[in-house]
């Protein structure tokens, strides 16, 4: 596949200097005739941890979808792994995505192992069945998130924190280079949150993953992120956590949530 070669070229060429795996240049997004993102520009270097903060309805989830190529920007340029959104379709196995909330039925009859195997589905390809390589990748991924021994447990019987780990394993079991996590720690208690973040940080280090982590919990991101982006429809800040959190403009970004809601109606969730 032509696309695959291009991504391996992307990773093999020019070692040493960090390269931007994700680049957004002046991205504007409209959903149903409403501007959701305005003039977003930032880049993420390989192997770094970017935190995306912003109030509810700020367009954080839409930003994720733009990166995944699921939402086309009205204007601007997006490059992920050096590819344009259209070319990215065949390279999605390099990107692991964890949605804000996996809305699954707790009695859905699948085990942890089955859920993680779902992550391999696009890699295996249609009309084909999992091979030994796939099964090994799944087991390795389950080990990496510390769920060994629970492979055969129904997913609905796991605790919230364990379920999140299972979904993380699912997004890791491909040739994952980029992890997009949309509020992965929402709904977890402090302890589970802490251990999830520690796990994520370890995986990032060990595997050289590029992590984009959306949250509105600023304090969590401040400890783990290499850099932060604060968006509220438009981009307010981009820099190291110290710069962003020390800035007066952070407050401004959050305050305009109020204006935004009054002016534009309730925040929306768009596919």
């Amino acid at each position: 596949m032509a696309g695959r070669c291009r991504v391996s070229e992307f990773f093999s060429g020019g070692a040493g200097t960090p390269r931007a795996v994700i680049e957004l240049r002046d991205v504007w997004v409209e959903l149903d005739g409403r501007l959701v993102l305005e003039g977003i520009t930032f880049s993420v270097d390989e192997g770094t941890f970017l935190g995306v903060i912003g109030p509810n309805g700020a367009g954080k989830t839409t930003l994720m979808k733009v990166i995944l190529g699921l939402v086309r920007p009205a204007r601007g340029e997006v490059r992920v792994l050096g590819l344009q959104p259209g070319e990215l379709r065949h390279e999605l196995h390099h990107i692991g995505y964890m949605p804000q909330q996996v809305l699954f039925d707790p009695i859905f009859p699948v085990s942890v192992y089955d859920v993680v195997m779902m992550g391999r589905a696009c890699c295996i390809g249609p009309l084909r069945f999992p091979t030994r390589k796939d099964r090994e990748a799944v087991r390795e991924s389950i080990r990496a998130v510390g769920l060994e021994g629970l492979e055969r447990r129904p997913i609905g019987e796991l605790s919230g924190g364990q379920q999140k780990r299972a979904f993380l394993a699912r997004s890791l079991c491909l040739e994952t280079r980029i992890l997009l996590l949309d509020e992965p720690t929402a709904g977890l208690d402090a302890e589970a949150q802490e251990s999830f973040l520690a796990l994520l940080n370890r995986l990032k280090r060990e595997r050289g993953l590029t992590v984009i982590f959306v949250s509105h919990d600023v304090s969590v991101l401040a400890r783990f992120a290499d850099s932060l982006v604060c968006i509220n429809r438009t981009m307010h800040l981009h820099g190291s956590p110290q710069e962003v959190l020390g800035s007066e403009r952070l407050e401004e970004a959050y305050r305009c949530e109020f204006d935004f809601l009054l002016g534009e109606g309730a925040p929306r969730r768009g596919w």
């Binding site: 949605p99 809305l103 699954f104 779902m118 696009c122």
Partner: peptide, 13 residues
């Protein structure tokens, strides 16, 4: 059936 949103994001038809 389990999780349509992630299935879309992972490029499944």
């Amino acid at each position: 059936s389990f999780d349509e949103e992630t299935a879309i994001a992972s490029g499944l038809p």
